[in-house]
Nucleic acid binder design. Structure first.
Lengths: 241, 241
DNA sequence: CCGCATGATTAATCCAGGTTATATCGCTGC
DNA sequence: GCAGCGATATAACCTGGATTAATCATGCGG
């Protein structure tokens, strides 16, 4: 399952994000250094539903999602689960963990995924050496921070319908950044239970709300795809201001 | 209201946190450089309830809370408000804004506060020059990230009683870090409305829950102080696992 | 002293969303 | 073929917390 990738030219070759994001910056930085610093990078794949990184893991690596969808979450002992953030290709599993220890959440594959594992110390070295690599880490931290504060606001101040609208719109926008989207149809691998755990309602109620969205011709989720038919209304529901 | 502080020795002199935290690291770094880089630091004070930094502000400074309590929040157009984080002396108002732009929340003084304003570019220079200053920024980012994820989990998965317990315990612990606390009595300047806006319930319900806590002899809030009488029970309610 | 504002308390009523249960529709494996 | 399972749908019922409103305590300026 775990295959080494000693060829630098092959760095992130299986990643669809060689031209932007963290991997791209890292790749560029490595090439710029003629000394061929050979990142000790490994790839591995995980099946849908499997855990990727558990809360107690003490290893100092940096994991980057290469393909597929995953999510960060916190598992409660009473069976509840809070999904903190969905991860798309190019996302770092735990950007904060690169420089500060103590983040404690788990991650799980939503679909079949490919993950790249980098050595923490090597990544930090590249951050110090190359301003752009560092900036990518900061961008990632900033995005996550902004998304966290939006989620807090949505969870604290909005009813279920608007929470779900906000989640769907956020995901749509992130998906649309890379990858061509046609006719407002987006790949959407989440089950209703994932939506439920992300916005803090039961899956029964998610089903109710999605039925409502269907009736009101706002959007439809079917066969792993999300089709938006009334973007303006969705944006109105998702709006935070 | 705005007084300049040209004397380096006076840097953070009015701050109670010269011996730890961000200001301390910065102070040490400045002293270590014999070139006397003179941080362009200004102090100002803000009365309770006044805004400190609004969402649209484009200035590139770093604000640090020197004394008093403040909080970050997002204002909704329908009158709702989500408090994102309470700030104690030594806290940076927006650590993420030092290196990444685009964070959009406001901040308000909860009590009368003293704030230190540093030039963003100078802070970044110190970060590059001194590893410890940089580490302080990362520690701050890490703390905020962890707190955000805890808050998301609490808001998404816990009923009002446990949300409030979690908030009170978190604040207690932060207050206890610096400043001697006697007999489980903590300074507590929040009004019930602040608790309400932080945990996403109405102030009416906060009053009910606090009455319940009083009846069950868990804790009492009175005269700007929080007195904990059953810490074990409070911890049980606040627990996330 | 009164008049007023701010915050806390408490009660009555209502509803969003939880809970529980049952049914349907693919799948996959046998 | 069908048994079993995961995901979705939908209905009946119940409750945590919202809403509204009335009351009370406190402090403060005149």
């Amino acid at each position: 399952m775990l295959r080494s990738e000693p060829d630098l030219a092959g760095c992130c070759v299986s990643c669809t994000h060689v031209d932007s994001g963290f991997c791209a910056a890292l790749f560029r930085a490595c090439r710029a250094q003629s000394a061929l610093p050979r990142l000790n990078q490994q790839f591995f794949s995980v099946r849908a539903g499997q855990q990727i990184k558990c809360q107690s893991e003490a290893r100092d690596d940096v994991l980057v999602l290469c393909s597929g969808w995953a999510f960060r979450y916190i598992q409660l002992s009473d069976g509840g689960r809070q999904i903190l953030r969905f991860l798309l290709p190019g996302d770092i599993f735990s950007p904060a963990a690169i420089f500060a220890k103590g983040m404690s959440f788990s991650a799980k594959a939503l679909t079949q995924v490919q993950v790249s594992r980098l050595d923490g110390e090597e990544v930090r070295k590249q951050c110090r050496a190359d301003e752009l690599v560092m900036m990518e880490v900061f961008r990632s931290l900033g995005d996550n921070g902004r998304a966290s504060y939006e989620l807090i606001t949505v969870l604290g101040q909005r009813p279920a319908e608007r929470r779900i609208a906000h989640l769907l719109l956020s995901l749509m926008r992130r998906v649309a950044v890379d990858g061509v989207v046609q006719h407002h149809r987006y790949p959407f691998p989440l089950k209703q239970q994932h939506i439920a755990d992300a916005v803090g309602v039961t899956s029964v109620h998610v089903s109710r709300v999605l039925a409502l969205f269907r009736d009101r011709k706002i959007l439809t989720i079917a066969e792993g795809r999300l089709e938006v038919t009334d973007l303006a209304e969705l944006e109105r529901l998702a709006a935070l201001n």
